[in-house]
Computed example of a mutant assay.
Amino acid sequence: MILLHRKWLLILLILLSFTTLIKAQTTKADETGKIYFLRSSGWGGTFSNFKFYIDDKFVCKAKYKRYSIHEVPSGRHNLKLQYGNKDLKTFKNGMPYIEVQVESAKSLYYELVYETGLFTTLIYFKEIDENTAKEKMKQMKENTSCL
């Protein structure tokens, strides 16, 4: 009788551990979001040494008419743009980075924008909505190598 109870207890513990493991994997997948970087305007060729960073980590070169997709944990992240090895301090808010909030299973879309004036060029990130991004991405290619 005691042996029978031990077998059922063992089976129950094994089942519980499997369900816990499956739930943990599902929950982990739901705790990430995506950041899309688009570069649909500006110059190609020599003037394309722009690099995207997430939380001070290089993630991709900003190639002309390309977009890249980056999966990140949900929460706050800093996005930064560099030209060569120099941070660009030309964001609309005057900061060398922008702070974004990534929500689970959601996507954020940021476009690299060039504004040229008589004596200056302003280069910064601009958040765009999903429909606008998807429309622009039809004319672009995904940058999967990011080098």
Rank of each mutant, 00 (worst) to 15 (best):
V72L: 09
E111M: 09
E130M: 13
E71G: 03
K134E: 08
G84W: 04
S68H: 03
Y124I: 15
F125H: 01
K134I: 11
N85C: 05
E71T: 15
T32C: 11
G94D: 13
T121C: 00
G84A: 13
H70N: 01
V59L: 01
F119M: 15
E111P: 11
D30T: 13
N49S: 05
M95S: 15
K34M: 02
L112H: 13
N93L: 06
E31P: 01
S74G: 07
S48G: 12
G84Y: 03
D30E: 15
A62N: 00
T90W: 15
Y36P: 03
E103H: 15
E115F: 09
K51M: 08
K134C: 12
L88A: 06
Y64A: 02
G44M: 06
Q101M: 05
K106C: 07
D56T: 09
A133P: 06
K126F: 03
E130N: 07
E71A: 14
K51A: 08
D56S: 04
L38D: 00
H70A: 00
Q82E: 11
I35V: 07
E103Y: 12
T121K: 05
Q101I: 13
K63G: 12
T46G: 11
K126R: 10
K51V: 00
T120C: 06
F37Y: 01
A24H: 13
G44T: 13
H77C: 01
D129S: 01
Q25H: 09
F125V: 00
R66S: 14
Y83E: 08
L122R: 06
A105F: 13
D87V: 14
N85M: 09
F119V: 06
D30I: 02
V100A: 05
T121S: 02
T120W: 12
Y109D: 15
D30M: 12
G42F: 02
I98E: 07
M95Q: 14
L122M: 11
G44V: 12
D55M: 06
K61L: 13
G94K: 06
V113Q: 03
F58P: 07
D56R: 06
K63H: 07
F58M: 08
K51L: 01
S107Y: 01
F58N: 04
Q82L: 02
E111S: 15
K61R: 11
Q101K: 13
T46F: 12
E130R: 06
Y83R: 02
K80T: 10
Y67M: 04
I69V: 10
E71R: 01
Q82T: 08
S41T: 10
M95P: 11
S68T: 05
I128H: 04
R76G: 13
K92M: 15
P96Q: 06
N49E: 14
A62L: 03
C60D: 12
H70R: 00
V100R: 04
V113F: 00
K65Y: 14
S74Y: 08
Q25A: 02
I35F: 00
Y124R: 02
A24L: 10
F119E: 03
R76D: 09
Y67W: 07
V113D: 07
T46H: 12
E111V: 11
F58R: 03
K126Y: 04
K86C: 08
Y83K: 08
L81D: 07
